[in-house]
Nucleic acid binder design. Sequence first.
DNA 1: CCCACACATAAGGCCATTTAATGGGTCGTG
DNA 2: CACGACCCATTAAATGGCCTTATGTGTGGG
Lengths: 300, 300
Amino acid sequence: MPLQLPPLTAIRVFEAAARQGSFTKAAAELGMTQAAVSYQIKLLEERVGAPLFLRKPRQVVLTEVGSRMVPTVTEAFGLLSEAYQVARAGSGGTLGISTVHTFASNWLAPRIGSFQLRHPNIAVRLDTSSALVDFSREEMDIGIRSGSGKWPGLAAHFLLRSQYSPMLSPRLAESIGGIKEPADLLKLRILNPADIWWKDWFAKANVPADALDRMPDTSLGSQAAEANAAMAGQGVTVLTTALFTAELAEGRLIQPFELTAHGGDYWLVYPEGRRNVPKIRAFREWIMAELNCPTDTTGG
Amino acid sequence: MPLQLPPLTAIRVFEAAARQGSFTKAAAELGMTQAAVSYQIKLLEERVGAPLFLRKPRQVVLTEVGSRMVPTVTEAFGLLSEAYQVARAGSGGTLGISTVHTFASNWLAPRIGSFQLRHPNIAVRLDTSSALVDFSREEMDIGIRSGSGKWPGLAAHFLLRSQYSPMLSPRLAESIGGIKEPADLLKLRILNPADIWWKDWFAKANVPADALDRMPDTSLGSQAAEANAAMAGQGVTVLTTALFTAELAEGRLIQPFELTAHGGDYWLVYPEGRRNVPKIRAFREWIMAELNCPTDTTGG
DNA sequence: CCCACACATAAGGCCATTTAATGGGTCGTG
DNA sequence: CACGACCCATTAAATGGCCTTATGTGTGGG
C-alpha cells in the first residue's frame, strides 16, 4: 500500500498559514493571492474531515486538530528542504571528468592541482577511458573528447588543436645516424602504422607511405602508452605536440620535423542543459583560462 | 526567508521511482503513466542541477546525489503521511456539542452516557450557551438549536416538537385553591410574561391576556432556570413538556392543562459538508434512534 | 533479425490552481 | 455612530502545470 499522503500543495500552504497565523500573510510569503490560500486550506479541511483553523475576526487560529498537525508537518518540510538543498549543493561536491588517457596524463593531471586549489570544495574524480562517455549512463559531469566539436545534445568548447607529428627518442634517432628527411622514419619501427595520422602526415610531407600497410600493427591504444614506448626507444610514433611539450623540452622525445598535420581537436563537452551548474561552470572557466581560450568557443 | 522547497509533486514521484527502481512501476504505483513519471523526474533533475538516476538498459539506478536524497525524502513523507492520518483519525477524537441549557440538562445530560458507552473512543465536550453557534468561529462539531429548521449552510435534523404549556409547583397551585381554568394563571406571578409563548398559549386557550403586558419581566434566560424558579414556587412559566417529563412525573411540577401550543422545534445541526464525518454520523444516528425519529428528517 | 521492454520526447487537452472582483464581518477611530 | 481599514469567503474566469496519447530510441533475448 503506497503510503497515503495529503494534498501536498495544500499542506504546504497550511504550514505557512499556521506559522503566520494569517491567510493574507501566508499568501504574501508564498507569492500567491489570499484567495488561493483560502481555497487550499478549505481543500485540506475537507480532506482531513475537520476544520483546521477557527476564523476569528482579525486572525485565524488553529483548531486542536490543526495544531496537532503543525509540528510534524513543519518537521517534514524541514527534512525535504534540507534534502533538496543538500542535493543541490552536493551536486557541486564531486566533479566527474571523463577523459582520454593522453589528455589526462599529459595535460590535465599536471594542472588539475591548480583547479583544486582554486575550488577546494569541489572533489575531482578523473575517469580515463577510451570509450566516449554517455552522460545518461555514467555518473560523469564533463568529458574531454577528440572529435569534430559536434555532438547532439552536448555543449562543446574547443580546447586545443590536435597538431601531431612523428616523435621518437633521441637515441633511436642517433642509432640510424639521425633523421634527415621524412622517409628516414620508415627505416625505423613504426609503433602504430595503421594509425590514419601516419598516412596524413606522410601525405602532407609528400612521401609515399605504402610501406605502412605492410608493417605489423603494434599500437598500444593510447598516445600516452605509445609515447612511453617511444621514449624507451622501441620505435617512432605520431603524437599530439601540445601534449608532449614537457617530454620534448626535457629531450626525452624529439620531434624531427616542424611539419605537423592535424586531426580531431580536443573539446570539453557536457550535457547542454547543465551549462550553468556551478561546478561545471567552474571547471569550464578554469580550463579555458588555463588554455588561453576565448571563453565562447562553443562548437557546433 | 521562507524555506526553499523542491517541487513537491516531482519529489513524490521521485521517491516512488527510487523505491521501485523503475519509472514504469512507479507510474503504476502512483496511478499515472510512465511518461508522466519521466517528466517529473526530469523536472526535478533540472531543479536539483544533477541527474538523479542513471538510465541503464533494463532499469534505472540512483546516482550518488539521488541516493543521498532518498532516505531523507522517505522520512519526510512518512511524517507527512503520519500527521495526515492522525489528523483524520484524531478529528474523531472529540465531539464538540453546542446546545441550549434546557435541552442539555433536561434531555441530553441524562442520556449522553449511553452514547459514550456505545462510542468509547469519542470524547464528548458539551458546551451550553444561549447564543447560536458559529461553526466557523468555535471549535464545535454539532449544535442543538431551537428554530425553524432552516439555516443556510447547515444540515438540520428534526429532533422533537417543542410543545409547551404552563407549569408551576403543586404548592403554588394549592395556595390559590387550585388552577381551574386558564385565567386562574393570571392571578399568579408570571415569571416570563414577555415570552411570546404565553401570548400564543393564552390565545389558543381563548383567554384575553392583555394583563401580561403590564407585568414586570423577570425572565431568567433559559427554561432550565425558570423551571427551577417555578419548582421553588416563585411563579408560573411556560415550558417545553417533552423536556420536563421527569419533573412532572415526580410531582415537582404540574401541568394544569392538557392544552399545549408549539414553538420553534428542536433541531440537530452541523455544517453541511461534514455529514459523513464519522463522529458526526455516529451522534446523528444515536440521537435519532434515541428519539425514534425516522433517520432522514432533514430540514429545509 | 525481430520482438519485447523500458525510458525519452512531442503534441495536445484537461483540470486543478490561481487570479481578480466582490461581499460580509469586525475593529479602531474621528 | 458612521466610516475606513483589515481580513477571510466566495464567485467566475483565465492560466498553465500536469497528465495522456502516440511515437521514437536503444538494448537485450529468443
